[in-house]
Amino acid sequence: MAETLFSFDRKNYRDCQHLFRGERNQEYYCGDFWIEEGSVIDARAERRAVGPCSIILLRSATKQFFRRTRRHIRDDATDLSVLWFVKSGQLVFSDQCGNRTAGPGDFIITRSMSPFLIECQPDGDQPHEALHVTVPTHILRGFLAHDVASALFLPAERREVSIAQKILTSVFRDEDLLSEQSARTLVDAALIIVGHAIRAGETGTPARQTVADRRLAEVLRFIEVHLSDSNLSTSMVAKGCGISPRYLSFLLRLRGTSFSELVWEQRLEKARNWLSSSQPRDISISEIAYGVGFKSPAHFSRMFKRVFQMNPREFRTTAPDENVHQDYVRYTGEGGLLQ
């Protein structure tokens, strides 16, 4: 459940520098924070902690300012990134590269290790409101293609940003009905979506899919759906996708694989993961073999050992939590494995 991080009015706003990080200075990082004096002083931030991240909803009818200098960075080397989803009003970001202004729907990432100034500005009678997420930069790196040196902007038309904001807002508003693990999973999903949006923004509009691209996507989906069927074959896939077996082989060659290689790699990968995440008392090796599309446990055992250098029972006993041989050995056998 969200808790109040700070709440400022005319009575206490002069102490905002000492209060904006919360009671124990547990949020953000060192910097100069102040509120513009005016007829209305009303600024409030609510926080929901999710693991090492915090989702913070900031509302203010008064201009707020935050400045991070090199002196602050020397005194407090916390490397924290903040993802800003601007909902109303404006957010003005200034650094050595110039000024940028974000309006409703825009998205910004700021980073604490470069000097900057932020202004949170109401828009007339409309208060400034932003949902932002503080993320340790070493964690954020796992979701982005490259580091954000100082700041990064995405305009309002990026659909992924809107979806990520909705996910984070739902987690923020949750009244402890979600488990901590589920909340973390949702935050991770939002960060993954943001990463996709950033990559799409860098590469521009993706190239239009060709007919072959669309057909290949249909083929891969059909195989994934029917992977557990031991009768899965080229003729079955071709018929299900409305193409000829010859064209099916051509599409898979475009992907750099054959039908046999693709199907057996996927089946063995699913089996390996299933063995790693299950207990013998819950499901037997034979059930796993049939569940991923093998016609017999003996065939499954031979194939598994050929690829992972141990049989399924040995794997389950000695390395249930290890990712053994993730670079799968492709094996098609003489004449192929599927007829």
Rank of each mutant, 00 (worst) to 15 (best):
L268S: 06
S233Y: 04
G256T: 14
L220S: 06
R221E: 11
S258H: 13
I243K: 08
F259E: 02
L248Y: 01
V263M: 04
S260P: 02
L262Q: 04
V225K: 08
G240S: 12
R272M: 04
T234D: 06
G242E: 06
K239D: 10
L262H: 10
S276R: 04
W274C: 07
F250S: 05
H226S: 06
K270I: 01
E269A: 05
W274I: 08
H226V: 06
G256F: 12
L251Y: 05
V237Q: 00
T234A: 02
W274D: 05
E218I: 09
L220E: 01
F222K: 14
R253Q: 11
V225R: 11
H226R: 09
S277R: 12
T257S: 10
K239F: 10
L252W: 04
S260C: 07
I243V: 08
V237P: 06
C241V: 05
L220W: 01
M236A: 13
A217Y: 04
K239A: 15
E265V: 10
F250K: 10
L232A: 06
F259Q: 07
I223L: 03
A271K: 07
M236V: 15
H226E: 00
S230N: 13
V263K: 02
Q279H: 08
L248I: 00
V237H: 04
H226W: 08
L248G: 02
F222M: 07
S278G: 05
P280Y: 15
S277G: 11
D229C: 12
A271Q: 09
S235R: 10
G240K: 15
S277P: 04
D229M: 15
S233P: 10
K270P: 03
S258Y: 08
V219M: 02
L248C: 05
L275I: 14
L220R: 09
N231C: 15
E224T: 00
R246N: 08
R267F: 01
F250C: 05
L262N: 10
S276L: 07
C241E: 14
M236K: 15
D229H: 14
S235G: 15
F250G: 03
E269Q: 07
L227G: 00
S276V: 04
R272Q: 09
S235K: 13
I223G: 00
A217K: 12
L220V: 05
S230Q: 14
Q266L: 06
Y247R: 05
S233F: 12
M236C: 07
R267A: 01
S235Q: 11
S235I: 11
